[in-house]
Amino acid sequence: MKKFLLMMLTVMTICLFIGCVKTGNDTAKDINKIKIGVCIANGNDKYGSYLLDEMKNYSKSLKDVEVVFADAKQNSNTQLSQVEDFISQRVDAIIVTPVYIDSSKEITDKAKAANIPIISLMNPFENQSDSACYIAPDSKQAATLEMEYLAKKMNYKGNVAIIMGPMDDRAQRVRTETYHEVIAKYSDMKIVAEQPAEWDRARGMALMETWLKSGKEIDAVASNNDEMAIGALKAIEAAGKLGKITVGGIDATPDSLQYLKSGKLAVTVFQDAAKLSKSSIDTAIKAANGENVEKTINIQNELVTPENVDQYIAKWKNK
Results as ranks from 00 to 15, higher is better:
D310K: 14
I281H: 11
L276K: 06
V309C: 10
E291L: 05
N75V: 04
K73P: 01
A284W: 11
V83A: 00
D169T: 07
L145W: 04
K185L: 11
I14S: 02
C39M: 10
D169R: 00
A206I: 00
V160I: 14
S139D: 15
I36K: 02
T283Y: 10
D30T: 04
N42A: 07
Y134A: 06
I163C: 02
N123M: 13
A239P: 11
I40G: 05
Y156Q: 04
L233M: 14
R203T: 06
F4Y: 13
E227W: 00
E302L: 08
M1L: 10
I183K: 07
F125L: 11
G37R: 02
K22C: 01
A239S: 15
K152N: 15
P117R: 05
L207W: 00
K319G: 00
E84W: 02
Q79T: 06
P166D: 12
D45R: 03
P137S: 15
S214L: 12
V174F: 01
D251Y: 05
M208K: 03
S129E: 15
V83Y: 01
K110A: 15
L265C: 06
A287N: 07
D53L: 13
N308G: 10
I218A: 02
V83K: 01
K35M: 12
K140S: 07
V65P: 07
T210L: 00
C15V: 05
V221K: 02
Y156F: 14
T210E: 08
M208Y: 08
S280R: 08
A193F: 10
K110M: 03
Y134S: 08
W316Q: 08
S280Q: 09
A136C: 13
A136P: 02
I285N: 11
K319M: 03
K261M: 03
